[in-house]
């Protein structure tokens, strides 16, 4: 069995919390101990959301320390850089190529960082950075809201959890009528990080 410390980052409303719950469920089904904690604060009003997820044979602390995250899974581009302090040197970053400008950017007070700025921050610690078109692919599949399951598809390629267990956990967590579209998103996510 492996140890995984995973940071999931995003913006309130993007489905970060549900994604973390599904990963936790899949890990339990695979026989792991799991602890999950969210630093939400007042995120439901458009703030940043960060989920800490720890998966190992035995876990004590739910929080991930600095330089300890094996994987940073970011639903919004800039938020990946915000979680930089957690990233383990040589760790994996999967970031969705979607910009959600905060109000300070919308009001013209601050500027959204360029791709180059974001990537140059991340590559200080790792060259394993995967920039995926999650929002575009999700929209093409038919609903932008399946983004979180698309991102799980990406993540699944870096974890030792069986494909069958992933799918069961997804099916268990969603209303029946939206399962099919989400499974499509999961499969698209897998393709997005496969070597071409």
């Amino acid at each position: 069995m492996n140890n995984y410390s995973i940071i999931i980052a995003g913006v309130g409303g993007q489905g970060v919390i549900l994604a973390g719950n599904i990963i936790g469920d899949a890990a339990i089904a695979s026989g792991y101990d799991v602890k999950k904690t969210d630093t939400i604060g007042m995120a439901q009003r458009g703030g940043s959301v960060i989920s800490h997820l720890r998966i190992a044979p035995k876990i004590y602390a739910p929080l991930i320390g600095e330089n300890q995250a094996d994987i940073v899974l970011s639903f919004e581009k800039m938020e990946a850089a915000r979680c930089f302090n957690f990233l383990k040197p040589g760790g994996i970053v999967i970031l969705n190529n979607r910009e959600m400008p905060p109000l300070s950017v919308g009001c013209g007070i601050e500027e959204y960082p360029s791709d180059n700025e974001i990537l140059s921050v991340l590559t200080q610690k790792t060259d394993k950075v995967y920039l995926v078109e999650g929002s575009k692919k999700s929209a093409a599949i038919g609903n932008i809201k399946v983004l979180n399951i698309f991102m799980l598809g990406c993540l699944s390629q870096f974890m030792d959890i069986e494909d069958k267990i992933w799918r069961e956990s997804i099916i268990k967590s969603l209303p029946a009528k939206i399962v099919a579209i989400n499974i499509s998103a999961f499969e698209a996510g897998i393709q997005a990080v496969k070597p071409q």
């Binding site: 913006v11 007042m42 439901q44 320390g65 330089n67 500027e111 959204y112 960082p113 140059s120």
Partner: peptide
């Protein structure tokens, strides 16, 4: 923990609204 050698990202804040 923290390695001062890393350049810290300067990001716009994302506050609740």
């Amino acid at each position: 923990g923290t390695d001062a050698a890393y350049k810290k990202p300067a990001l716009p804040g994302r506050f609740p609204l």
